[in-house]
Design a protein around this nucleic acid. Structure first.
Lengths: 297, 297
DNA sequence: TCCATTCATTCCAATAATGGAATAAAACTT
DNA sequence: AAGTTTTATTCCATTATTGGAATGAATGGA
């Protein structure tokens, strides 16, 4: 692996930054600051991209946003990833039949990126929008990590370590092995559920400044054991289910993306929860199969 | 305008190339050749992009295609361009009510890129797929050119000049002024229609080698006057309508994208054609209005 | 309305990316 | 199965890009 190409990364940084804030528009200076570019470089970069409609320039406010060329490229990308289409269809069916919210997300560049969402959320909180990005931190993303190599697992654990006490950290480490063993992840609701907050709620779509990270880390520090992972379904039934997730594998054996079911009714029995888990896992397995994926050894 | 940033353009070249062939996958060497890169540069570029999932690498065949990150970016781009969503909805309605095929396309990087398509085609030919790219050459793209500055118009005319005889070329030049005056473009069917070919048919989704361009230029040389532009609707009614198109304007006064209606029944009267034109223009105007666009002075 | 501040744009010395050759690894052919 | 061609990857001197300062334009506040 050769040293990465910086100019190339800069282009992707700009695109990622703009995609992470799909409703906003940014000036040259703002983009330069957030992406870590000098004004001069940002100027050439942005004008070059705007000239080819990868970015749209809004003359009136001198701001930039994602351009029309990316609409077409995104559509072309979907054609390459039939699994996304299948996931949309199947998740919509699940959402309708079970009255839950379903989504699919991938790990991109160390962040969780929402690829699809079906079903309407019960609450505003935990609402995911396609294109949104969240940090890869507990309690989310276990399915992405559990089938990765030791290096990725260590990175995940190391990021969470400073914010968890020993007991919770141990549970997280165990959870990874457990998730891989049983083939899905399930998190219970925790203390915050009483406040109308779901643990999957993380500040989103805002600039990742110190205040943002403080809020995220504070949330992680307050997790209850069950929010990290429910070790059996009875535990989940007692506290209520926060979310269930299952992996879709690529042909290479890595996790292509994960399916997430959330917004479940709070009065489910352990048996009903098992049914939901079964449905989600079956859907994930079906997509894995239809896209010629396979789980790693 | 500063000299463009080459490293940035290379990234966009790769993305455009892969997006132009959404069903295929390419090796490093193929991409390097088509985009005009050295193997060394291509190697670093592709591995850098694949590392961040902008490209998907298929280990088995050592090929690359568009990655999952672009799915999310494409979705985010759609959020910025509400017009695309509105166009989808309205074009679907038009397609259903009139029994025609409708699409939207934008000018990206000197090429026509299909952004949306609604309604099923009557024939396989002229079938457009979202993400597809076609050269900006007569008889398509008049709406993109007609509201542009003299420079863009000259470029368009110059590209067509070598392949048209004097009479046809004069008609094309006139057509641009006419389209701008009346606010839409309409092309009749020509000789090729009898063979089941529409003039909008152009080789697509294949590598742009010499054979490709020969086929394209040969097609242009065989255009009939009405295929370039029907100067009145009676002319269109007599030969049958190939396609109608109307521009959607951006706030800046430039053409954001154009709407195209094709696959019309061949037995329409001039009055019925006028009705179709009216519907398409009204839709375009509505989208222009809803997205705060305006026609240039 | 004027001033201060922020922002966009240009320019040049310092620096990092690039092209092309060389090497190694596949893939294909005979 | 061995030879031959194509492909992927590494390396280094050449060359083009970059960061930062300076300028000019525009915005917001008093």
């Amino acid at each position: 692996m050769p040293d990465p190409s910086n100019p190339t990364n800069r282009v992707m940084d700009v695109l990622n930054f703009l995609a992470a804030h799909p409703t906003e528009r940014f000036s040259l200076a703002e983009i330069a600051r957030h992406v870590g570019l000098s004004n001069g470089s940002a100027h050439r970069l942005l004008t070059t991209m705007a000239a080819r409609r990868f970015l749209a320039r809004h003359e009136r406010h001198r701001t930039y946003s994602l351009g029309l060329a990316l609409v077409a490229i995104g559509q072309a990308a979907i054609e390459q990833h039939r699994g996304i289409d299948i996931a949309r269809r199947e998740l919509a069916r699940l959402a309708l039949e079970l009255g839950v919210q379903c989504s699919a997300n991938a790990l991109v560049d160390g962040e969780i990126v929402v690829l699809a969402r079906e079903g309407t959320a019960r609450s505003q909180l935990g609402l995911t929008r396609v294109g949104e990005r969240r940090p890869l931190l507990p309690p989310v993303g276990l399915c992405h990590v559990a089938w990765s190599g030791p290096a990725a697992i260590d990175t995940y654990l190391a990021a969470a370590r400073p914010h968890l006490d020993d007991a919770l950290f141990g549970r997280l480490a165990e959870a990874i092995a457990l998730v891989r063993r049983r083939g899905f992840a399930i998190a219970a609701k925790g203390l915050r559920a009483a406040l109308g907050h779901d643990a999957t709620w993380l500040p989103v779509d805002q600039v990742r400044d110190a205040a943002y990270w403080n809020a995220v880390f504070a949330m992680i520090g307050q997790l209850s054991p069950g929010e990290i992972q429910a070790f059996d379904l009875a535990e989940a039934a007692a506290a209520g289910v926060s979310h269930i997730s299952a992996p879709v594998f690529a042909p290479s054996g890595s996790v292509a993306f994960q399916l997430v079911m959330s917004g479940l009714p709070s009065d489910l029995t352990a048996g009903q929860i098992a049914g939901h888990v079964e449905r989600l896992c079956a859907t994930a397995a079906q997509i894995t199969s239809e896209t010629h994926g396979r789980a790693p050894d």
